[in-house]
Nucleic acid binder design. Structure first.
Lengths: 187, 187
DNA sequence: CATCCCTGTGGCTATCTGCCGCAGGTGATT
DNA sequence: AATCACCTGCGGCAGATAGCCACAGGGATG
C-alpha cells in the first residue's frame, strides 16, 4: 500500500518532518504543507487519501480547512492533531468532518491506527501491524513535559506553571529522567 | 416549541429528575428513561426530537444507543452528557451521530443551547479558537487513559496493561473524579 | 466442576508530590 | 550599590499516590 498519499499540514516544521519520516516508513507516500494555501495546492495536485492536520496553523484555524479539503477530495480522511486539545474543538472538528482527533504528543502508530480505523479499503493489514503499546503513561508524560519545556525555552518555572505542577516536582522529574536521546520508533 | 418532546436517559435518578424539571420549565415536554431498554421503548412510543443521553448507563454504554435512537427517530438530536468527559469519548460520540457533547456538571441553559444549536456551525468561528495553554499534566494523563480505555472497550485490566501501569492504580485513578482544574472553553 | 479472566476491595510499604524555606545567580530599575 | 523580580538548585517534611500482594465474587468456557 505504498501508493497511499498522505498530506501532513503543520506549521511546526520539526514536528512535521519527524512525523513524515515515521509515516513514510510505515508505507505512506508523504507530502507536507506548512500553511493553508500550500495545503490547498497540494491537495488539488495530489488528491491525497489521508491528511494529518494541525489545529493551530499559525494565524489560521485548521478547522476551516477540513470542509475545503473534503470538497477537493471527497474521500479524504482528515486526522486532526493538536497540542492544545479541548473537548470543544474536538467536537467541532468531528462535526466538520474530521475522521478523528488526537492530542499531541502522539506516536506514529497511534496516528496510523486513527487514519486507518474503520477503513474498509485498507486491505493491507501489514500497515496496522503495530499494535504496540499505546504509549505508557510515563512516556506520554515525559514527551509532553519535553514539548512544553522546549516551548518555554527551557524555563523550568514557567513550564511547571503551564503544566499545572509544582516547580520542585518538575525539577525532580527532570533530574531523575535519564535524558534519552533516541528512545525507539518515531518520536 | 413547547410541544418539543425530549427524552432524558440517565441512570442517575436524581440528576435526571433535576434536569427534567429544569428543561420542563424551559418548554420541553420531558420524558425520562433510566436504562437502554426503557429508552428504546420510550423513543419508539414518543418519537422525541431531542435527547439527553448519559455516557455511562450503568453496565451499558450510552454510545451504542445513539445509532439505535437515530434509527428509530431519524431527526432526533442527541446530546451526550457525562461526568467523565474526555476527548476520546467526545470524538466517538460525535462520530456516532451525537449532536453535541457536554461534561457534567452543566447548567440547563447550556443544555438547551446545545440542543437547539442550529446547523449553523459554520457561522460562529469565534467559538472554536484553540485554548492557549497546553494541557496540564493531569488532564493529559486523563485524556490518554480515556482514549486507551475506550480502545479497550472499557476493559480495565487490559488498559492497565497497555498503559504499563498497575491495575489497582488505574482503578484508583478512575474512581477519582476527572481532573477538572481549568475547564477552559468546554463544559 | 475447574479454569481463566475480569472486577472491586483492603492493607502495606516505598515513592512521589506539594509546599515550605534558603542560598545563590542574573538582569533591569532606582 | 542597592533593590527588585526573576530564575535555579537543594533539603526537609507531611500527606497523597503507586506498586504489590491477597482475597472474594462474577461470568464465560471446556
Amino acid at each position: 500500500m505504498s501508493d497511499q498519499q498522505l498530506l501532513i499540514i503543520d506549521d511546526d516544521a520539526t514536528f512535521a518532518r519527524v512525523l513524515a519520516r515515521a509515516l513514510g516508513s510505515r508505507g505512506f507516500e508523504v507530502i507536507t504543507a506548512s500553511n493553508a494555501d500550500e495545503a490547498r495546492a497540494l491537495t488539488r495536485r495530489h488528491q491525497p487519501r489521508y491528511c494529518v492536520l494541525d489545529l493551530k496553523l499559525g494565524e489560521e484555524n485548521g478547522l476551516r480547512l477540513i470542509p475545503e479539503l473534503q470538497a477537493l477530495v471527497p474521500e479524504i480522511r482528515v486526522l486532526l492533531l493538536t497540542g492544545y486539545a479541548s473537548i470543544a474543538t474536538a467536537v467541532e472538528a468531528i462535526k466538520r468532518g474530521a475522521h478523528d482527533y488526537l492530542s499531541k504528543p502522539v506516536d506514529a502508530d497511534a496516528v496510523v491506527r486513527a487514519l486507518l480505523d474503520g477503513d474498509t479499503n485498507a486491505g493491507d493489514d501489514e500497515l496496522i501491524d503495530a499494535p504496540e503499546a499505546p504509549l505508557a503513561l510515563r512516556r506520554l508524560e515525559w514527551e509532553h513535559i519535553q514539548r512544553v519545556l522546549t516551548e518555554c525555552d527551557g524555563n523550568i518555572s514557567e513550564t511547571a506553571r503551564r503544566l499545572g505542577m509544582h516547580r520542585r516536582t518538575l525539577q525532580r522529574k527532570l533530574s531523575k529522567h535519564p535524558v534519552r536521546e533516541r528512545p525507539d520508533s518515531e518520536d
